[in-house]
Amino acid sequence: MFSRLSRRKAVAVCALPAVALIATALFAPLPFSVAQPGLTANVLGANQGAAVITISGAPTRTTSGQLRMTTIEATGPDARVSLGDVIDGWFRTDRAVLPRDSVYPSGNSVKQIEQHNTEQMKQSQDAATRAALKYLDLGGKDVKVTLKLADVGGPSAGLLFTLGIIDKLHGDGHGGDLTGGRTVAGTGTIDDAGRVGAVGGVALKTQAARRDGATVFLVPKAECSDAKAELPQGLRLVPVTTLNGAVDALTALENGKGSVPSC
Protein backbone atom coordinates (compact mmCIF):
# COMPACT_ATOMS: atom_id res chain seq x y z
CA MET A 1 0.00 0.00 0.00
CA PHE A 2 1.26 3.45 -0.97
CA SER A 3 1.33 6.19 1.57
CA ARG A 4 -0.40 9.46 0.74
CA LEU A 5 2.97 11.00 -0.06
CA SER A 6 3.91 8.05 -2.26
CA ARG A 7 0.65 8.34 -4.17
CA ARG A 8 1.31 12.00 -4.84
CA LYS A 9 4.74 11.15 -6.19
CA ALA A 10 3.30 8.37 -8.34
CA VAL A 11 0.64 10.65 -9.80
CA ALA A 12 3.17 13.36 -10.47
CA VAL A 13 5.60 11.03 -12.21
CA CYS A 14 2.87 9.35 -14.24
CA ALA A 15 1.52 12.74 -15.29
CA LEU A 16 4.78 13.96 -16.79
CA PRO A 17 4.49 12.01 -20.08
CA ALA A 18 0.89 13.24 -20.56
CA VAL A 19 1.95 16.83 -19.99
CA ALA A 20 4.76 16.40 -22.49
CA LEU A 21 2.35 14.99 -25.07
CA ILE A 22 -0.10 17.86 -24.58
CA ALA A 23 2.70 20.41 -24.85
CA THR A 24 3.98 18.74 -28.01
CA ALA A 25 0.48 18.75 -29.54
CA LEU A 26 -0.04 22.40 -28.64
CA PHE A 27 3.15 23.60 -30.27
CA ALA A 28 3.81 21.09 -33.06
CA PRO A 29 3.20 22.47 -36.58
CA LEU A 30 -0.09 21.35 -38.13
CA PRO A 31 -1.21 21.30 -41.80
CA PHE A 32 -3.54 24.28 -41.39
CA SER A 33 -3.55 27.96 -42.23
CA VAL A 34 -5.21 30.60 -40.07
CA ALA A 35 -6.96 33.34 -42.05
CA GLN A 36 -8.36 36.73 -41.06
CA PRO A 37 -9.99 39.70 -42.82
CA GLY A 38 -7.49 41.27 -45.20
CA LEU A 39 -7.09 44.54 -47.03
CA THR A 40 -9.68 46.01 -49.38
CA ALA A 41 -8.97 48.30 -52.32
CA ASN A 42 -11.19 50.69 -54.25
CA VAL A 43 -10.74 49.66 -57.89
CA LEU A 44 -12.12 53.06 -58.98
CA GLY A 45 -9.27 54.82 -57.20
CA ALA A 46 -5.54 54.43 -56.66
CA ASN A 47 -3.42 51.77 -55.00
CA GLN A 48 0.05 52.67 -53.77
CA GLY A 49 -0.05 55.91 -55.75
CA ALA A 50 -1.12 54.42 -59.10
CA ALA A 51 -4.60 54.18 -60.61
CA VAL A 52 -5.96 50.66 -60.37
CA ILE A 53 -7.79 51.01 -63.71
CA THR A 54 -6.33 52.97 -66.61
CA ILE A 55 -8.22 53.13 -69.92
CA SER A 56 -7.18 54.53 -73.28
CA GLY A 57 -8.93 54.53 -76.65
CA ALA A 58 -12.35 55.50 -75.26
CA PRO A 59 -13.71 58.40 -73.20
CA THR A 60 -13.93 57.76 -69.48
CA ARG A 61 -16.12 59.39 -66.86
CA THR A 62 -15.51 60.71 -63.37
CA THR A 63 -16.98 58.37 -60.77
CA SER A 64 -18.18 58.79 -57.22
CA GLY A 65 -18.65 56.07 -54.68
CA GLN A 66 -16.34 53.12 -54.33
CA LEU A 67 -16.06 49.56 -55.61
CA ARG A 68 -13.88 47.73 -53.11
CA MET A 69 -12.37 44.34 -53.85
CA THR A 70 -11.78 42.28 -50.72
CA THR A 71 -9.14 39.85 -49.53
CA ILE A 72 -8.25 37.54 -46.70
CA GLU A 73 -4.83 37.30 -45.07
CA ALA A 74 -3.58 33.81 -44.24
CA THR A 75 -0.52 32.50 -42.45
CA GLY A 76 2.20 31.68 -44.96
CA PRO A 77 2.76 28.22 -46.44
CA ASP A 78 5.88 27.75 -44.32
CA ALA A 79 4.40 29.21 -41.11
CA ARG A 80 4.13 27.03 -38.01
CA VAL A 81 0.47 26.68 -37.02
CA SER A 82 0.05 24.92 -33.66
CA LEU A 83 -2.93 23.25 -32.02
CA GLY A 84 -3.23 26.33 -29.84
CA ASP A 85 -3.56 28.51 -32.94
CA VAL A 86 -6.20 26.17 -34.36
CA ILE A 87 -8.25 26.13 -31.16
CA ASP A 88 -8.04 29.92 -30.89
CA GLY A 89 -9.17 30.28 -34.52
CA TRP A 90 -12.15 28.00 -34.01
CA PHE A 91 -13.50 30.18 -31.20
CA ARG A 92 -13.07 33.55 -32.93
CA THR A 93 -15.44 35.02 -35.48
CA ASP A 94 -12.67 37.06 -37.10
CA ARG A 95 -10.50 34.01 -37.78
CA ALA A 96 -10.92 30.88 -39.88
CA VAL A 97 -8.90 27.68 -39.76
CA LEU A 98 -8.44 26.23 -43.24
CA PRO A 99 -6.55 23.20 -44.54
CA ARG A 100 -3.24 24.54 -45.82
CA ASP A 101 -3.74 22.70 -49.11
CA SER A 102 -6.96 24.66 -49.71
CA VAL A 103 -5.04 27.93 -49.43
CA TYR A 104 -1.72 26.93 -50.98
CA PRO A 105 -1.13 24.17 -53.54
CA SER A 106 0.46 21.23 -51.74
CA GLY A 107 4.18 20.66 -52.23
CA ASN A 108 4.95 24.03 -53.85
CA SER A 109 7.66 26.37 -52.67
CA VAL A 110 6.85 29.89 -51.49
CA LYS A 111 8.25 31.28 -54.74
CA GLN A 112 6.11 28.89 -56.83
CA ILE A 113 3.00 29.80 -54.83
CA GLU A 114 3.62 33.53 -55.31
CA GLN A 115 4.10 32.96 -59.04
CA HIS A 116 0.90 30.89 -59.20
CA ASN A 117 -1.10 33.63 -57.42
CA THR A 118 0.37 36.29 -59.70
CA GLU A 119 -0.61 34.28 -62.78
CA GLN A 120 -4.13 33.81 -61.43
CA MET A 121 -4.44 37.56 -60.87
CA LYS A 122 -3.24 38.28 -64.42
CA GLN A 123 -5.72 35.79 -65.89
CA SER A 124 -8.48 37.34 -63.77
CA GLN A 125 -7.63 40.84 -65.00
CA ASP A 126 -7.59 39.71 -68.63
CA ALA A 127 -10.97 37.97 -68.22
CA ALA A 128 -12.39 41.05 -66.46
CA THR A 129 -11.31 43.29 -69.35
CA ARG A 130 -12.80 40.98 -71.98
CA ALA A 131 -16.06 40.57 -70.04
CA ALA A 132 -16.44 44.33 -69.52
CA LEU A 133 -15.72 45.27 -73.15
CA LYS A 134 -18.07 42.53 -74.35
CA TYR A 135 -20.81 43.81 -72.03
CA LEU A 136 -20.33 47.33 -73.44
CA ASP A 137 -20.09 46.06 -77.02
CA LEU A 138 -16.56 47.43 -77.29
CA GLY A 139 -14.85 44.11 -77.90
CA GLY A 140 -13.84 45.00 -81.46
CA LYS A 141 -12.75 48.54 -80.63
CA ASP A 142 -9.22 49.78 -79.99
CA VAL A 143 -9.72 50.15 -76.25
CA LYS A 144 -6.81 49.35 -73.94
CA VAL A 145 -7.36 48.62 -70.27
CA THR A 146 -4.52 48.36 -67.77
CA LEU A 147 -5.17 46.98 -64.28
CA LYS A 148 -2.66 47.37 -61.45
CA LEU A 149 -3.11 46.16 -57.90
CA ALA A 150 0.03 45.62 -55.86
CA ASP A 151 0.54 42.91 -53.25
CA VAL A 152 -2.61 40.96 -54.11
CA GLY A 153 -2.82 37.61 -55.87
CA GLY A 154 -5.48 35.16 -56.97
CA PRO A 155 -8.60 35.43 -59.15
CA SER A 156 -11.25 36.65 -56.71
CA ALA A 157 -11.21 40.34 -57.71
CA GLY A 158 -12.45 39.55 -61.22
CA LEU A 159 -16.04 40.71 -60.70
CA LEU A 160 -15.01 44.01 -59.08
CA PHE A 161 -12.45 44.74 -61.81
CA THR A 162 -15.14 44.19 -64.43
CA LEU A 163 -17.63 46.48 -62.69
CA GLY A 164 -14.93 49.12 -62.25
CA ILE A 165 -14.16 49.16 -65.98
CA ILE A 166 -17.87 49.42 -66.81
CA ASP A 167 -18.38 52.25 -64.32
CA LYS A 168 -15.46 54.25 -65.74
CA LEU A 169 -16.63 53.78 -69.32
CA HIS A 170 -20.40 53.73 -69.01
CA GLY A 171 -21.72 54.06 -65.48
CA ASP A 172 -25.34 53.03 -65.15
CA GLY A 173 -26.06 54.05 -68.73
CA HIS A 174 -28.00 57.16 -67.67
CA GLY A 175 -25.21 59.43 -66.49
CA GLY A 176 -25.09 57.97 -62.98
CA ASP A 177 -22.65 55.75 -61.13
CA LEU A 178 -23.11 52.03 -60.70
CA THR A 179 -22.47 52.55 -57.00
CA GLY A 180 -25.04 55.31 -56.59
CA GLY A 181 -22.38 57.09 -54.53
CA ARG A 182 -22.21 54.17 -52.05
CA THR A 183 -19.25 52.13 -50.95
CA VAL A 184 -19.92 48.77 -52.55
CA ALA A 185 -17.66 45.79 -51.89
CA GLY A 186 -17.68 42.25 -53.16
CA THR A 187 -15.85 39.21 -54.40
CA GLY A 188 -16.13 36.65 -57.16
CA THR A 189 -14.26 35.33 -60.16
CA ILE A 190 -15.32 36.27 -63.68
CA ASP A 191 -14.97 34.55 -67.03
CA ASP A 192 -15.17 35.90 -70.57
CA ALA A 193 -18.88 35.12 -70.72
CA GLY A 194 -19.58 37.14 -67.58
CA ARG A 195 -20.25 34.20 -65.28
CA VAL A 196 -19.44 34.85 -61.61
CA GLY A 197 -17.72 32.08 -59.66
CA ALA A 198 -17.28 31.25 -55.98
CA VAL A 199 -14.04 32.09 -54.22
CA GLY A 200 -14.10 31.10 -50.53
CA GLY A 201 -13.40 33.13 -47.39
CA VAL A 202 -16.51 35.29 -47.82
CA ALA A 203 -17.34 35.41 -44.08
CA LEU A 204 -13.98 37.10 -43.49
CA LYS A 205 -14.27 39.32 -46.57
CA THR A 206 -17.60 40.74 -45.40
CA GLN A 207 -15.92 41.80 -42.15
CA ALA A 208 -13.13 43.50 -44.08
CA ALA A 209 -15.69 45.24 -46.29
CA ARG A 210 -17.75 46.60 -43.40
CA ARG A 211 -14.59 47.68 -41.56
CA ASP A 212 -13.68 49.79 -44.59
CA GLY A 213 -17.08 51.44 -44.92
CA ALA A 214 -19.04 49.23 -47.32
CA THR A 215 -22.82 49.03 -46.98
CA VAL A 216 -23.42 46.62 -49.89
CA PHE A 217 -21.59 43.38 -50.59
CA LEU A 218 -21.81 41.46 -53.88
CA VAL A 219 -21.41 37.75 -53.18
CA PRO A 220 -21.46 34.74 -55.50
CA LYS A 221 -24.90 33.22 -54.95
CA ALA A 222 -23.45 29.80 -54.12
CA GLU A 223 -21.75 31.34 -51.07
CA CYS A 224 -24.77 33.11 -49.57
CA SER A 225 -24.96 30.83 -46.55
CA ASP A 226 -21.26 31.32 -45.76
CA ALA A 227 -21.60 35.08 -46.12
CA LYS A 228 -24.60 35.17 -43.78
CA ALA A 229 -22.81 33.17 -41.07
CA GLU A 230 -20.90 36.13 -39.59
CA LEU A 231 -22.55 39.02 -41.44
CA PRO A 232 -21.62 42.39 -39.90
CA GLN A 233 -24.46 44.72 -38.97
CA GLY A 234 -25.17 47.34 -41.61
CA LEU A 235 -23.93 45.30 -44.58
CA ARG A 236 -26.46 44.23 -47.23
CA LEU A 237 -25.75 41.05 -49.17
CA VAL A 238 -26.58 40.98 -52.88
CA PRO A 239 -26.15 37.55 -54.49
CA VAL A 240 -24.97 37.41 -58.10
CA THR A 241 -24.34 34.71 -60.67
CA THR A 242 -23.60 36.82 -63.75
CA LEU A 243 -22.17 40.19 -64.67
CA ASN A 244 -25.54 41.25 -66.11
CA GLY A 245 -27.20 40.36 -62.83
CA ALA A 246 -24.64 42.33 -60.83
CA VAL A 247 -25.07 45.45 -62.99
CA ASP A 248 -28.88 45.13 -62.85
CA ALA A 249 -28.81 44.80 -59.06
CA LEU A 250 -26.56 47.86 -58.63
CA THR A 251 -28.69 49.87 -61.04
CA ALA A 252 -31.84 48.93 -59.12
CA LEU A 253 -30.17 49.98 -55.87
CA GLU A 254 -29.09 53.26 -57.44
CA ASN A 255 -32.41 54.34 -58.96
CA GLY A 256 -34.84 52.48 -56.70
CA LYS A 257 -36.45 50.73 -59.64
CA GLY A 258 -36.61 46.99 -60.07
CA SER A 259 -35.95 44.24 -57.59
CA VAL A 260 -32.68 43.69 -55.77
CA PRO A 261 -31.96 40.04 -54.94
CA SER A 262 -31.04 39.02 -51.43
CA CYS A 263 -29.51 35.96 -49.80
Rank of each mutant, 00 (worst) to 15 (best):
P37M: 08
R61K: 15
G45M: 11
R95E: 11
A46W: 00
L21D: 07
Y104I: 03
A96F: 14
G84M: 04
S82E: 07
S33I: 04
L30D: 01
V43D: 06
F91H: 09
T54G: 11
A20Y: 10
P77T: 05
L44H: 03
A41D: 05
T63L: 08
R61N: 08
A58C: 11
G45S: 08
E73W: 13
T60W: 06
A25K: 00
L16H: 01
G84V: 03
T62P: 06
R95Q: 10
G38N: 05
L98Q: 08
R80W: 11
Y104C: 04
W90F: 15
G107F: 15
L83R: 04
D78W: 03
T70P: 07
A79R: 07
G76H: 14
D94L: 06
A35I: 03
R92E: 09
P105K: 06
D78E: 13
D101L: 00
W90Y: 13
V81D: 12
P31K: 01
R61C: 09
A50M: 14
P59D: 14
Q66D: 09
R68C: 02
L26H: 01
A23D: 08
R80N: 09
D101W: 02
A46R: 11
T60C: 09
I55A: 07
F91D: 00
G57A: 06
A51K: 07
V34Q: 07
V52M: 06
S64M: 12
L39V: 08
A20W: 13
P37E: 05
S102G: 00
A41W: 02
G38R: 01
I72L: 13
A20I: 13
T70N: 12
N47W: 08
A51P: 04
D85H: 05
G57K: 08
R61G: 12
S109E: 05
V103S: 04
T93Q: 14
G49I: 02
S102K: 08
P105L: 10
V81A: 12
G38C: 10
A25V: 02
P59Q: 11
P37A: 07
A35G: 09
F27C: 09
T70F: 12
M69K: 06
P37C: 04
C14V: 15
G57D: 10
N108I: 02
A96N: 12
R100E: 13
D94N: 14
M69F: 10
W90C: 03
A15K: 03
V52P: 06
A58V: 12
N108H: 14
A79G: 02
A15I: 11
A28H: 07
A51T: 08
G45C: 10
S56G: 03
A58K: 11
D78A: 12
P77C: 12
T63V: 10
A23C: 08
I87L: 15
Q66V: 09
L21Y: 14
S106A: 15
Q66A: 15
T40I: 07
V52R: 02
A25P: 00
N47D: 15
S56L: 01
A35K: 00
R80H: 13
L16C: 08
A28P: 04
S82D: 13
A23L: 14
R68K: 13
D78Y: 03
M69V: 14
P59K: 12
I55F: 09
P31T: 00
D101I: 00
G65Q: 12
S64A: 15
S56H: 04
P29F: 03
D88G: 04
